[in-house]
Amino acid sequence: MKVILLNEVKNLGKINQVVEVSDGYAKNYLFPNKLAVSATEDALKVNKKIKADEKEMALEKIKYYQSIKSDLEKLTLEFYLNSKDGKVANAISAKQICAYLHFNFGIELDKHKFVNFKPIKALGTTEVTVKLYSDVLAKFKIKVSEK
């Protein structure tokens, strides 16, 4: 029996995917738990429209994140740290960078989106990479100066 999944089902498929399952599995597990619907002609039409809408939304998100990427890549963020004899006392975290971007530029970032980030403990310029969306990576510079 062909069914359209309404939720992700482990070892079976993802949302809106059309899969072939046994009649018993569909009637006894998927349908009662509202995990799937029968793949009728009308349901397949609706599913096709939903997939088209999702694709359009994904393209819009990519455009949005591309614009944020271009804004970020123009920036050089400036931070100041206390140092003594060339040694820095503390570090700049991803959380601090996110707060700086939010308050100064209105750009919202999640601290978990930083790629291979380690707190910055050195004076000078460092390049940081952020994964904004599936394939959209932005690189920007952080300049750390002595207070």
Rank of each mutant, 00 (worst) to 15 (best):
S67G: 10
N82Q: 12
N82L: 12
I107W: 07
K95R: 14
Y64D: 15
L101F: 09
H102M: 10
Y100C: 02
F103P: 00
D85R: 00
S70E: 15
K63H: 08
L75S: 06
I68S: 02
L101H: 04
S93A: 06
I97S: 00
Y64T: 14
S70P: 05
K61F: 14
Y80D: 06
L59M: 13
E60H: 14
S83T: 11
L101C: 10
V88M: 04
L75T: 06
I97G: 01
E73N: 09
I107V: 12
K69C: 08
I62Q: 12
I107Y: 07
K63P: 00
I68K: 03
F79V: 08
D71I: 06
K69Y: 07
K69M: 10
I62C: 03
K61T: 06
L59H: 09
L72R: 10
S83G: 02
I68P: 02
K84I: 14
I62W: 01
F79Q: 06
Y64E: 15
A89N: 07
F105T: 02
K95S: 13
L75P: 05
K84M: 12
L101T: 05
Y100P: 03
L72T: 08
K111F: 11
D85S: 05
E60R: 15
D110H: 09
A89M: 05
K69I: 07
F79G: 08
Q96S: 10
T76Y: 05
A91D: 09
A99P: 00
A89C: 02
L109V: 10
E73K: 08
A99S: 06
F105C: 01
G86Y: 12
K61Q: 15
Y80F: 13
I107F: 09
F79N: 09
G86I: 12
V88C: 07
K111C: 08
E78Y: 09
N90Q: 11
G106N: 12
C98D: 06
K74F: 03
H102R: 14
K63C: 05
E78C: 06
K113Q: 14
E78Q: 11
H112Y: 07
T76H: 05
I107Q: 08
I62G: 04
E108M: 08
A99D: 05
K87S: 13
S70Q: 15
D110M: 03
